[in-house]
């Protein structure tokens, strides 16, 4: 026993290194498996507040840019208002179906932290569970997709960006409804791929890509990007489409968190029928 303690003391630096390294790797791998790590993410109070303060300090430098995007957005909203969308006093915008029933409600949020150069990117927003944000809600800008809410704290939330290896959603070519899975290969933050497309038909660069209604996170028919090129995967029968994103991740300031109001009804019904089988 004595010699064992002596052995530990003699190599204490190495053992400390090993212990701390194991802790770090545990953080890494427990998180990759989608388990919540207890504090290593940017929605905690300390990082959230630092990022928010810094965001307020630097906001000034982006004013003209934000102004431009807000003007463009205003125009879009006015157009949308004609198509039965309404905005209430809290800044929430609702999208109605053809019977005037509310389907989606969008809550504006400010981006306080955003990476787009790493292989797995996250975005931190200044709204959290106290503002009604829950996990798995979709996040969009006025012209494209941003991601899906992954973690929520009372005042902040972390969004899994479209530019993340775990982000997947079904999208379609608008003109002929050819569908596939949207993935990002970790390289160019402006380009994503649509994989597993079985028969693309005739496509042309510039064709609009939109969301499908299969995921409750995003409203169907929402713009995603435009087609750049497409081709057959070598050694497979599937096609891959290259798409240029409409969302400019390098200039993300304000986003909308989408609340699908019928989500509960839809998932309950789906679960019921699965249970029935």
């Amino acid at each position: 026993m004595r010699s064992f303690i002596q052995f530990l003391l003699r190599y204490h630096v190495f053992f400390l290194f090993l212990l701390l390294e194991l802790i770090s790797l545990w953080f890494l791998f427990s998180n990759n498996a989608y388990q919540r790590t207890f504090f290593v993410h940017s929605a905690n109070r300390m990082t959230g507040n630092v990022l928010n303060t810094y965001g307020n300090l630097t906001k000034f430098f982006y004013l003209s840019e934000v102004n431009d995007s807000l003007l463009a957005e205003n125009a879009l909203l006015r157009e949308a208002m004609i198509q039965q969308a309404t905005a209430d006093s809290g800044g929430r915008i609702s999208m109605l179906d053809e019977h005037g029933e509310m389907l989606y409600s969008c809550m504006p949020a400010k981006v306080i932290n955003n990476t787009f150069t790493l292989p797995n990117n996250y975005i931190t927003l200044d709204k959290g569970s106290e503002d009604g944000i829950v996990k798995d809600m979709g996040v969009i800008t006025s012209n494209g997709l941003v991601g899906i809410v992954k973690d929520v704290s009372p005042h902040f939330s972390v969004v899994l960006s479209v530019l993340h290896s775990h982000f997947h959603t079904r999208v379609a070519v608008k003109k002929n409804n050819v569908q596939g899975r949207l993935v990002w290969n970790g390289e160019d933050p402006t380009v994503v791929k649509i994989v597993d497309v079985s028969e693309p038909g005739h496509l042309e660069p510039g064709d609009t890509i939109v969301t499908t209604g299969y995921s409750a996170a995003f409203p169907p028919g929402y713009p995603v990007g435009v087609l750049k090129s497409y081709g057959k995967e070598t050694g497979s029968n599937f096609y891959t489409l290259e798409v240029e994103l409409t969302t400019a991740f390098s200039r993300l300031h304000y986003v909308y968190v989408v609340d699908y109001l019928l989500k509960e009804e839809q998932t309950n019904l789906e679960e019921e029928s699965h249970a029935g089988n």
């Binding site: 204490h12 290194f17 953080f27 940017s42 300390m46 990082t47 797995n120």
Partner: peptide
Amino acid sequence: WLVLILAFISGLIVDMFNNTPGMHASAML
């Protein structure tokens, strides 16, 4: 041992901001 602990903490702080759990901490160690 102090260098190791300081490296671990500074790595972890950057991890928190970048949402890279444990990656910077490991590299710093």
